[in-house]
């Protein structure tokens, strides 16, 4: 069963005090929990948050399911999100995403067998002037080519 670390619990408690409405802490709490649960929100995460925050599971689930940044299934150690919306598509982003999938022998939205990578094709990340780009976990990599993107992934520990 998932449980927040002491540090995570302190963060969530702080968020509960931070806003005018307690419910506003749901998104920040989901972020804290996702980081501590290998990058995704499992049902037991929601159960635990519900108890810690004293907010109904249904309410947390509603928020969790609405937003794309909360992962609904396990993702690789490196979650590689390639923006494929128009400006990026005009600059070869879709081919870049396909290249990464081909090299890593994995389909988009699935995890590599070694658990290191998940390649996702996502919508606009606000990096249209430096397309194509990818977000690896929290970090943006811009002005990529299929080769440079693959080299970046190979260089990750």
């Amino acid at each position: 069963m998932f449980q927040l670390s002491n540090e995570g619990l302190t963060k969530v408690k702080k968020e509960l005090q931070r806003y005018e409405s307690k419910d506003s802490a749901i998104i920040p709490a989901l972020y804290v929990a996702q980081k501590e649960n290998k990058g995704w929100i499992s049902p037991d995460v929601i159960h635990h948050l519900s108890q810690v925050m004293d907010i109904a599971e249904s309410k947390i689930t509603e928020v969790f399911s609405f937003y794309t940044m909360f992962n609904k299934k396990p993702v690789g150690k490196y979650h590689v999100q390639v923006c494929c919306t128009l400006s990026c598509a005009l600059n070869g982003a879709r081919e870049l995403a396909d290249h990464l999938c081909h090299e890593l022998k994995v389909r988009a939205e699935e995890m590599t067998e070694d658990g290191r990578f998940t390649i996702s094709k996502v919508e606009c990340l606000g990096s249209c002037g430096t397309a194509p780009m990818m977000q690896v976990n929290d970090r943006y990599y811009e002005n990529l080519t299929p080769e440079s993107a693959m080299n970046i992934l190979r260089g990750l520990k």
Partner: peptide, 10 residues
């Protein structure tokens, strides 16, 4: 003044 981070929704 405070910051609030969204979570991915146009």
């Amino acid at each position: 003044m405070d910051i609030y981070a969204g979570a991915g929704a146009y």
